[in-house]
């Protein structure tokens, strides 16, 4: 039950996040969408590790099956790396805004088409 609910939630989060990532034109909003989408991907892996009536992957907690610890271990590093790459992406947006005075991707694309002005 928990596993199915979590899978549905993961897929919904991924959908909402990717939708924002594609449709919104502002780079900061795009990054927010990317953050939600990556949360969905992480939840997806954790939901796959879940088994019905599973206990946490710690020995000595009693009988019964435990959740698969391998996806948990992979996801643990992914969460921290997500934060670091998000910080880097925000830095790029800040530098871009300083130089081009916009966060609108269509305007940035058009600027590029017409050639970026000389420094």
């Amino acid at each position: 039950m928990e596993g199915l609910t979590a899978l549905a939630l993961a897929i919904a989060l991924l959908g909402v996040g990717l939708w924002t990532l594609i449709v919104r034109r502002n780079l900061i909003w795009k990054l927010l969408g990317l953050n939600v989408a990556s949360n969905g991907a992480i939840l997806f892996l954790v939901a796959l590790a879940h088994r019905p009536a599973a206990r946490p992957p710690i020995t000595g907690l009693g009988p019964g099956p435990s959740a698969d610890p391998l996806p948990h271990a992979l996801v643990l590093t992914a969460i921290v790396i997500d934060f670091a790459t998000l910080a880097l992406a925000l830095v790029f947006v800040i530098v871009l805004t300083e130089r081009r005075h916009t966060q609108d991707v269509r305007r940035l694309e058009r600027d590029e088409e017409h050639g970026w002005p000389e420094r």
Binding site: E2, A6, N35, V46, P56, P57, A67, H72, V80
Partner: peptide, 27 residues
Amino acid sequence: GVYLFLAAPDVALTQAAVGFGLVTFIY
């Protein structure tokens, strides 16, 4: 909170500290 119910306390702790703490502050 959802991770806690999926029997993943390690992930829940990390997600709370990073997702709620660091990511929000940096934004």
